[in-house]
Design a binder for these strands. Structure first.
Length: 1145
RNA sequence: GCGCGCGUAGCUCAGUUGGUUAGAGCGCCACCCUGAUAAGGUGGAAGUCCCUGGUUCGAGUCCAGGCGCGCGCACCA
């Protein structure tokens, strides 16, 4: 007996039962133990941060991350899955600040770095529970208990090792650069972080006059017009840049006739338009004429009064170090005035100008002018606005310029500007700052070469998004002037400024004269619950100092910075094992990864950080002394991952980005509770290729259920119902159930080899095994979308053809076993369906692990107990049995299915319902299928049965019903005939098809005369012969042929049709009365119609057997249900009642 | 601005090296089945394959230029 099955699946409940089973039996662990020692399939978990709630996108990632490890495990490989959590960084700090109601660095310092860090460490686990629940709920098998955690000491020390390596190789350096700076947060951000914060804003756009100076240093009547959208940078102005080969003009505006202005010629008119005034051009000259001219800066905070001070150049001349026109290539006429205000402190390009200028000077070089403090306020060097946040001063600055008549024009300018990605009201500014960088740009080519070897899916990521990103690589801005992160392990000599990197905590403790460890010890004593991992974090680590190796008596102090948390995640391939300090075996065997997958936003994130770190540390140029694992492929590429599925972004119900505030998506738990994890997983896998953006809509998820899961469930439920009725037991006498593969099943009682079974069974098994082939091929190529579709087609074939065509066998009398009253054909049907169901469940297991497990438990573990795998996930993925695959039969069965379908179409067209028997159906096969004619005729019974007709034949006179058209096979003739093709085409159109076909038959070729007088000889293979139904017949055509239905209805046929109508009504009535389908009934009819009465009498026998009637009378029964029917216009009253108690079948 | 992706039926999406009649699911309409049954099936209607131009005997598919959407990048001073 199989456990009875719910008619309607309740997936969430089933899933909960299965999950409990897995847990109590430790199935995941067993699935690993099962494969220990086998070839490894290496998977890396990109660490999510448990600092926020999981959302639907995470369900997708986790589903994909589960699919391939499950599949590979079933394929015999050993796939460890170690979870991981990303725990450092700004997101955590910002969350904590929010909860404390503070914002700035000063406030954090005031609160205290130590308690702040404690808060951060606690906050990291805030949504841990939700994450773990979700992970299990979607069926993502991963070892959460051994998860790596980026703040753990061993992890931090691995990162330290990596940083020390880079430092020792000169690849980690401190540079003074213009960085994107978050003033309120007091730290620089990486380009990736900056990129996340761009937002469209309206900034003031000002056109400012820079009056040119005369020889004595006094302002003249003539001014340059510079344009900027950041007025706050004007006090720090240092140069004005022009383009040498651009034409500039001196002009006078009608509304301002006293002064003259200089700007690029192509932009002059548009500025006049903006000012709503007219313009008078006084003279024009090339930009080169302006180079070297001196001007009065808009603010005098740095400029002493009087004549510009001259400084010696290397060339022997001398020039002022500031407020001078210089030439620059980057000046364009796209916008502005063609004169660019240069403030080197606040722009990378501007800073480049300064560096270039500095090279020209002899001894004293131009200083960097900067009147903005790191916190974003003006310094005392700009007294009028000192202490105010620069972005808040734009209005006052503009007003000031206007009052001094230096403001030529002002407007609003709409553009994208970066804000802090974690504090989105804080604008970022470009700012000069000493910061630590990794020389990634030096490894650009190595990274590109490494990238070249990675199998990206979709392919275009390699050359496109990711390749471009690598090609434009800039040095990694690594350091963060923050608190909660991996501390930069660099200690600096207080006297000499010389630095060294420390690769491990132990190494630090063994330094001479080390002190400061007591700070953590004391904290631990005060708070025993404090995590030991915090000893390597701020502020404790900062307390540790030691004797300088560079100068006697000096001490070494750690630099204050922590690092970008993306470096943490990128170090995960080795840091998850604490390598190289520990975990050498693990790293050896788990690197590089065979498979990773994340969403596309990780191109600049985890995909990059992994590749960059791996290339720098383990690439061919590496001089790292600790060697990478011996498993490294010979040429060293690709690493650290070979195959990467880049997932599309998930969109909300409305197709736009998911957003909490827009409420355009349902919480994952709601979907999971309502439809189940398998439904969600199947939707993800089968809905679209994974790299498409995917719409997370409840409707779409709901509607994806019937097509596959429900259909499969219905077949399963059908099987269980009838197998129980018929006593089908697969375990009877089976010697070795194995994995219930075809060959194992062969040892069972009542099992006949496929070759001895009906064609339908052989077809079904052929489809099953062909599908297994397709799926393995697709999944090996990481194409689960194609695999899912193949699986779905298989289920359609089982449900809509095999079960449908096998009903008679399932309902035939006799037991489904090898006993004396056993029925061999019935047995075959059960064995076939049993094999199909168990094998399909295994094929589906990586996709829908819960439902397939439910099948396995009932179909396999139920009858066999401990003789089969206790879980479907401990079985092997089905390997196709090549001997069972049969392409000819597949084609033929497809043909017969089309014939049946066309027959129904023809009936529908002629309004002849299937209940009405017809005399004959004729088929005209397309030329392409003519060889299957004999086979089709041998299946006449099947066609007749499907279409409810008396006879089936291949049409003897096809010309009655069809016309044939000869079309050129363009694919074949195109390359051969080229430009002649259209002529051949029209010639064939005009030619008589029958003549051509005769010619093909008789001579193998036919000659076609073209309009240009030439002849072309073509063979039948060059053509496609199309068959088209003529009008006037009940016919339907498809690609494989034409089906014609005889629409003539004889009185006999009509009578039979009427009886079938009555049978239909009786069956409905049985159902209405809620009778068991084994209940016998008595029938009584009353009708005025002689015709109907005769029909019923004539077919009383079939009427009785179809409806399980023990008696049929032509008078109404006492105490029976009455129903009045209309059969073809004849009134009939039917009475029906149960004949006896139901008896078991 | 540059780069990547996408644009096919009312909706969500397939569409293999260019080839004759462009498909699926859902929805809609009509019908069938009634021993999987609050399921299942069949048929039908429905398309300017975003636009324009080009290459080609032939373009949904290749090329160029637009338009729209999404994402990414960033010296918009």
């Amino acid at each position: 007996m199989f456990q009875p099955v719910r008619g309607r699946p309740d997936l969430p409940t089933t899933e909960a039962e299965i999950a409990a089973l897995w847990k109590s039996a430790g199935i995941y662990q067993k699935s690993l133990d099962n494969r220990r020692g086998a070839k490894r399939f290496v998977f890396f978990e990109g660490p999510p941060t448990a600092n926020g709630m999981p959302h639907p996108g995470h369900c997708l990632t986790r589903a994909i991350k589960d699919l391939y490890p499950r599949y590979r495990t079933m394929r015999g490989e050993f796939c460890e899955r170690k979870a991981g959590w990303d725990t450092h960084g700004l997101p955590v700090e910002v969350e904590v600040c929010k909860s404390l109601g503070i914002h700035s660095k000063a406030e954090i310092e005031e609160y205290g770095v130590e308690p702040f860090i404690h808060r951060c460490q606690e906050s990291v686990w805030r949504y841990m529970k939700e994450w773990e629940t979700l992970t299990e709920r979607v069926g993502f098998w991963i070892d959460l208990s051994k998860a790596y955690v980026t703040y753990h000491q061993s992890y931090v020390e691995s990162v330290w090792w990596a940083l020390a390596e880079l430092f020792n190789r000169g690849l980690l350096y401190q540079g003074h650069k213009i960085v994107w700076w978050w003033p309120q947060g007091g730290t620089a951000l990486s380009s990736g972080e900056v990129g996340q914060g761009y937002r469209q804003v309206a900034d003031p756009s000002v056109y400012v006059a820079f009056p040119l100076l005369d020889a004595s240093g006094s302002p003249t009547n003539r001014s340059l017009i510079a344009w900027t959208t950041t007025p706050w940078t004007l006090p720090s102005n240092q140069f004005a840049a022009i383009k040498a080969d651009l034409t500039y003009v001196a002009v006078r505006f009608e509304d301002d006739p006293e002064r003259e202005y200089i700007l690029a010629e192509p932009l002059a008119a548009s500025l006049a338009d903006k000012k709503k005034t007219t313009i008078e051009v006084l003279e024009s000259f090339p930009g080169s004429d302006l180079v070297g001219a001196c001007y009065l800066p808009p603010f005098d905070c740095f400029r002493p009064p009087g004549q510009p001070e001259l400084t010696a150049l290397k060339s022997g001349d001398d020039e002022p170090t500031a407020w001078r026109v210089i030439e620059a290539d980057f000046v364009t006429t796209d916008s502005g005035t063609g004169i660019v205000h240069i403030a080197p402190a606040f722009g990378e390009v501007d800073y480049g100008v300064l560096l270039a200028e500095r090279k020209r000077f002899e001894n004293k070089v131009p200083p960097l002018l900067n009147c903005v403090a790191p916190d974003g306020t003006f310094t005392d060097e700009f007294p009028t606005m000192a202490g105010r946040f620069v972005k808040d001063c734009d209005r006052d600055l503009t007003r000031d310029l206007r009052s001094r008549e230096l403001l030529v024009h002002q407007e609003q300018y709409l553009h994208d500007y970066p804000f802090c990605w974690r504090a989105d009201n804080d604008p970022l500014i470009q700012y000069p700052r000493a910061s630590w960088f990794i020389r990634t740009s030096q490894f650009r080519d190595a990274m590109l070469a490494n990238n070249e070897q990675i199998n990206w899916m979709p392919e275009h990521i390699k050359e496109g998004r990711f390749g471009n990103f690598l090609a434009n690589n800039v040095d990694w801005a690594l350091s963060r002037e923050r608190y909660w992160g991996t501390p930069l392990p660099i200690w600096v000599c207080e006297e000499t400024g010389k630095a060294e990197a420390v690769p491990a905590y132990e190494a630090l403790l063994s330094k001479p004269g080390v002190t400061g460890t007591e700070v953590f010890e004391k904290a631990k004593a005060d708070h025993p619950e404090l995590s030991d991992d915090l000893r390597v974090h701020k502020p404790y680590i900062d307390a540790i100092t030691y004797d300088s190796p560079f100068q006697d008596g000096a001490r070494m102090y750690r630099v204050p910075e922590v690092i970008d948390c993306w470096f943490d995640s990128g170090a995960m391939p080795f840091a998850q094992w604490g390598w190289p300090h520990t975990g050498s075996d693990e790293f050896q065997s788990q690197w590089p990864a065979d498979f990773i997958s994340e969403a596309i936003d990780q191109t600049r994130g985890w995909f990059y950080s992994q590749l960059a770190i791996s290339t720098l540390l383990f690439g061919p140029e590496s001089s790292t002394e600790v060697k990478p694992p011996a498993t490294m492929p010979p040429n060293g590429y690709p690493h650290p991952f070979r195959n990467c599925i880049v997932l599309g972004h998930m969109l909300g119900e409305d197709g736009s980005k998911m957003s909490k505030s827009k409420r355009n998506y349902k919480e994952p738990t709601e979907i999971l509770d309502r439809y189940g994890a398998d439904a969600l997983r199947w939707y993800f896998f089968a809905g679209q290729p994974p790299w498409n953006s995917i719409r997370y809509s409840e409707r779409a998820i709901r509607e994806s259920v019937p097509e596959f899961l429900l259909r499969l469930w219905n077949v399963y439920s059908f099987f269980v119902i009838y197998a129980n009725i018929d006593g089908f037991n697969p375990a009877t006498h089976m010697k070795n159930p194995g994995q219930l593969d075809h060959k194992n099943l062969g040892t069972a009682d009542g099992f006949r080899p496929a070759s001895e079974r009906s064609e339908l069974d052989r077809w079904m098994l052929a489809e099953l095994h062909a599908t297994a082939n397709t799926m393995v091929e697709a999944l090996d190529a990481y194409d689960h979308y194609v695999a899912a579709r193949a699986l779905s087609d298989l289920v359609d074939a089982v449900s809509n053809w095999f079960v449908r065509r096998s009903r008679d066998r399932f309902w035939a009398s006799g037991r489904a076993d090898a006993s004396a009253d056993g029925n061999a054909e019935k047995c075959d049907a059960y064995w076939t369906l049993y094999e199909v169901l168990t094998t399909t469940a295994r094929l589906a297991a990586p996709f829908v692990p819960f439902v397939s497990e439910a099948f396995w438990q009932n179909l396999a573990v139920g009858p066999f107990g401990g003789r089969v795998s206790e879980s479907i996930h401990l079985t092997d993925y089905p390997a196709a049995d090549a001997e069972l695959i049969n392409p000819d039969l597949a084609r033929q069965m497809a043909l017969i299915r089309e014939v049946a379908s066309l027959g129904r179409a023809a009936r529908a067209q002629a309004k002849l319902k299937v209940r009405q028997p017809l005399s004959k159906v004729e088929v005209i096969l397309a030329e392409s299928h003519k060889n299957d004619a004999d086979w089709l005729v041998s299946h006449a019974d099947l066609v007749c049965n499907e279409l409810n007709v008396k006879a089936f034949e291949i049409c003897a006179e096809p010309e009655r019903y069809i016309t044939r058209t000869i079309l050129p096979d363009l694919k074949k003739l195109g390359p051969r005939l080229g430009k002649k093709l259209p002529q051949v085409r029209s010639a064939l159109q005009q030619a008589d098809a029958t003549t051509l076909i005769t010619a093909f038959r008789d001579h193998g070729v036919a000659t076609v005369s073209l309009d240009d007088g030439t002849d072309v000889s073509i063979s039948e293979e060059d053509c496609i012969i199309r068959t088209t139904a003529r009008d006037g017949w009940a016919a339907a055509e498809g690609t494989r042929g034409v089906v014609v239905i005889s629409s003539e209805i004889t009185p006999e046929l009509l009578a039979e049709g009427q009886v079938r109508e009555v049978i239909h009504a009786v069956q409905s009535q049985r159902k209405t009365l809620d009778l068991e389908f084994t209940d016998r009934i008595k029938l009584g009819f009353a009708t005025e119609s002689e015709e109907l009465r005769k029909a019923l009498q004539a077919h009383a026998e079939s009427l009785a057997s179809e409806t399980l009637a023990v008696s049929i009378e032509f008078e109404l029964l006492q105490n029976a249900e009455l129903e009045t029917l209309d059969i073809d216009g004849h009134a009939l009253t039917m009475s029906l009642k149960r004949a006896s108690q139901s008896k078991a079948s």
